[in-house]
Design a protein around this nucleic acid. Structure first.
Lengths: 203, 203
DNA sequence: CACTGCTCATGACAAACGTCATGTGAGGAG
DNA sequence: CTCCTCACATGACGTTTGTCATGAGCAGTG
């Protein structure tokens, strides 16, 4: 029996510590490194070369997906998986596109997580069935690249003039994109559109 | 030595289970009940009458603060504490106003948490120093009750007409409140105001 | 090559919005 | 009792929007 070397990255010390303790109970798993931020996770991974990196999606510095992207090129032998509280369909897609092998919500039990780590280590993938269903039913973003960009700039409630300036577009164009985005999303106005797009992980 | 009977409520199974395991290592603490939702937490508390209820702030059904409020009247002997990922000043204030004895971020370690549970059980209070500093520097909400109410209704990007209807106010009045709220918060428009108020936990 | 879809623009109009002046009534503070 | 604040309202004003028509340049596809 081989021992799986695991890197644990989560900014919540409470969870990270508790998780490490629980995984330590599994005698084929060994937590060889822990990290509380994105950059720290990268550094620890370089130093300890784990078999599997368990990454929280929301971390200070760099989120789980970008850490996974970096790891993919730097340590091809290291499988990555994402654990998260907020299972947005868009996040799942981004994660899979970044080569992440598993995407699980924090609502699973530690025992299940251990099983998933083994699955991933064996070279297989795992996606939470419910999240997968959501992602499939949610579908792809209907927004074009510019529409998405403009919508993001509108996300903090900025007026059109400011968005236009920051995007180097004319105000009329910005209004057109915003209008198109809102109608594609079935929203009454851009602010509601922002909310919807966020919910679906499209921004 | 008395044993402290603890109720653990958190919708993230991973965390709840891990936490229960870690707290079980402390021989003066006993996790007598677990819950994944607000209503479930209430039911479990009634059934098991714990000494201390450790409540996650964000749970389906009812959030930690409202559970704490209910517990305060139903089980006066049960001390409550809030654990959360997002330490917004406003949440801290609401929690303390609801009679919560401790407010801690999930970035603490399990050992620290155990200590805090003991502190709370002994009748003392605990507030994370950093959160406390934030809360003090952030100050109170400058908004009146109605301003807050209207701002909340505006939170999902609804047009003024809809807000007016839902608040049973005239559109002009709604605009006035929204305008007042935005200027008090130093925001350019109501949407930015919503964002700011959220950041500070005032909505 | 024609066709389609994305990008970017302009101009125009109606609706929604922000702001201000102004007024009434209720309730607390002095 | 008076003063002040808050809640609520109206009407009016200019500005910011959403929406639509229209058009040009530029990619990719059949």
């Amino acid at each position: 029996m081989t021992t799986v070397r695991v890197l644990l990255a989560d900014d919540e010390h409470l969870i990270r510590g508790a998780l490490a303790a629980l995984l330590a109970l599994e005698d084929d798993l060994a937590v060889v490194a822990e990290a509380a931020t994105g950059p720290e996770a990268l550094a620890m991974a370089r130093a300890h070369r784990p078999d599997v990196a368990v990454l929280d999606l929301e971390m200070p510095g760099a989120d789980g997906v970008s850490v996974a992207t970096s790891l993919r090129t730097e340590l091809p032998g290291c499988r990555t998986m994402i654990v998260t509280s907020h299972g947005l369909p868009g996040h799942l897609k981004r994660a899979l596109a970044a080569g992440v092998r598993a995407f699980v919500p924090k609502t699973v039990s530690a025992r299940q997580l251990a099983g998933i780590i083994r699955t991933v280590h064996a070279g297989n993938r795992y996606v939470d069935p419910e999240l997968a269903a959501d992602a499939i039913s949610a579908g792809d973003s209907p927004l074009t690249a510019r529409e998405t960009e403009v919508l993001e700039l509108a996300a903090d409630g900025a007026p059109v003039a400011e968005i236009a300036e920051r995007a180097s577009l004319s105000q009329g164009t910005v209004r057109n994109y915003l209008s198109a985005a809102a109608s594609k999303l079935g929203a009454e106005n851009r602010h509601a559109a922002v909310r919807l797009a966020r919910q679906r992980g499209w921004v």
